[in-house]
Design a protein around this nucleic acid. Structure first.
Lengths: 278, 278
DNA sequence: ATGTTACCTTCAATAAAATTGAACTTATGA
DNA sequence: TCATAAGTTCAATTTTATTGAAGGTAACAT
């Protein structure tokens, strides 16, 4: 840099700030106290700029602000551990968490409004989505012990059925599971959209319900008994991300933030191939 | 700003960072997670820039990094309160403190290497310097009580004299004060450049010394007695700054950082004119 | 699906800003 | 006081940013 260019820059900066930064009565020109303060601050500013460049360099680990969706169940059960793990293992990444229904979240991942989501995989996901099963949850019937005396057949014929959110992913899975059981024509079905309320009603002996094991366990009271659903149908909690999205090459990294993965699920080949201890 | 200009800037930034900040497959283009991280950081960067501009705006109070010199005595006695006051009353100012001899510090203020200095004013300061007396310190003789029994005359004739730094400002003042006292031709004079060592020797009864009151008080032991020097000579501790320097208009502000000022000194008119309580 | 529309990007031209070298000015030291 | 080295200024040049027109591409509606 030429001396004259430097001189011009000094002048320009002084004019821009409207302050004398240099004392020209001395040679070489000296910084004024304000000038020294500006230098101090400018040094910090440049450090800050380096930091910006640093964080902008993508690495093998997660960097950036990601938007992740969680269905309610996952938010309650998986989110705390996820946030713990990410704060430890991916300090350069921040997360915006959003909760909603499987279908909505899936749609937002497809449209790029979310980078990834933990959703229920009822019957396959669109091709544009990459996914991996996080948890497999069998369905169980739950009812007051008094109602269970008559066995499964008794429940079906005599008790009202509390159907949790029939329109959603898990609700449809429940409906599917119920289809293999005959119920009388006039059998009563009550629709609820709140898990805790459903279980409260069941605890009061008002009827029975069919839900994934963990949800029943969470709100179970001593009065409630369970009966494993004879079907092999189970809810699959999957992590889904767009194949061409920000997780295209780092899907496994994000996956690892969900801790131990149910290896019976559809884990990506290179991940499943790893030797396991024990 | 034109849309095309914005587009160009987006492109340029992406090339500069070597990272895809935007996902152009959507309309309007979306930020990638890295892009969001960069935005977050850039917002902080801009805040930082505002801060730089803010601190560069000079105000009535002290802003900037000032370099202040203190002679050793002042550093020991005045500096703590100075730093306390400035951190409270001038949070936008920072200080580089330097210690040294009066003559050296005075010279550095004249050449602009220091913005101000607390020095001894032996016999007037150069016209280019503005100054104000901070403390007036009478000189006292100090000696072991045993030696004092013979009075001042006894000291002069019988005891060795410990002369503190004859070549410096305070040393010359001491020499000046001693000139009004006759001593025998063969009277012993010991030169030391350390205040504490001088007082240790005096405490041991090895001789007497002549020093400003506060210095004697600081290192005095019960064995040491003092005798007020009959002359009216006293050390003046002054704050000095270049008239055309950074304190040209804020000298009084800096002065106030030294707490209560000995009003018998040469205080600037507008400051001395203030009504005093009590 | 398919076309329309609105929005975004690209490119060449233009405007703005930074840099340079030569001429001029000023602090420093003999 | 002068000579010199160092800093500043100015006009010309280079670099960078912005603009408007033309060419794509995603989004929306039919």
């Amino acid at each position: 840099m030429t001396l004259s260019a430097l001189s011009m820059q000094m002048k320009t900066l002084e004019q821009a700030l409207g302050v004398a930064l240099f004392d020209r009565s001395a040679r070489p020109p000296r910084l004024t106290p304000v000038g020294r303060a500006v230098v101090d601050e400018a040094v910090l500013l440049l450090r800050h700029e380096e930091k910006l460049i640093e964080i902008s360099q993508p690495r093998s680990d997660l960097t950036g602000r990601f938007r992740i969706g969680f269905i309610t169940t996952a938010a309650v059960r998986l989110l705390p551990r996820f946030l713990l793990k990410t704060s430890r293992d991916a300090p350069r990444a921040t997360f915006e968490i959003e909760t909603g229904l499987s279908a909505d979240l899936q749609n937002k991942v497809l449209t790029g409004q979310l980078d990834a989501a933990v959703i229920t995989d009822a019957d396959g996901l669109p091709d544009q989505l990459e996914s991996c099963v996080l948890r497999r949850e069998p369905l169980v019937f739950a009812a007051h012990r008094r109602l269970l005396e008559g066995g499964l057949a008794g429940l079906m014929s005599d008790a009202p059925f509390f159907h949790f959110m029939p329109d959603t992913g898990i609700g449809k899975l429940i409906a599917h599971a119920m289809m293999s059981h005959r119920r009388p024509e006039n059998a009563e079905t009550i629709v609820l959209d709140n898990l805790e309320a459903t279980m409260e009603c069941v605890a009061e002996g008002l009827g029975f319900t069919l839900l994934p094991v963990p949800d029943v366990s969470r709100y179970r009271t001593p009065d409630i008994g369970t009966l494993r659903a004879p079907t092999s149908l189970q809810r699959k909690l999957v992590l889904a991300a767009a194949r061409d999205g920000p997780f295209a090459r780092r899907f496994v990294t994000l996956l690892s933030m969900f801790g131990d993965i149910d290896v019976r699920g559809g884990i990506p080949a290179e991940h499943a191939a790893r030797p396991t201890r024990g």
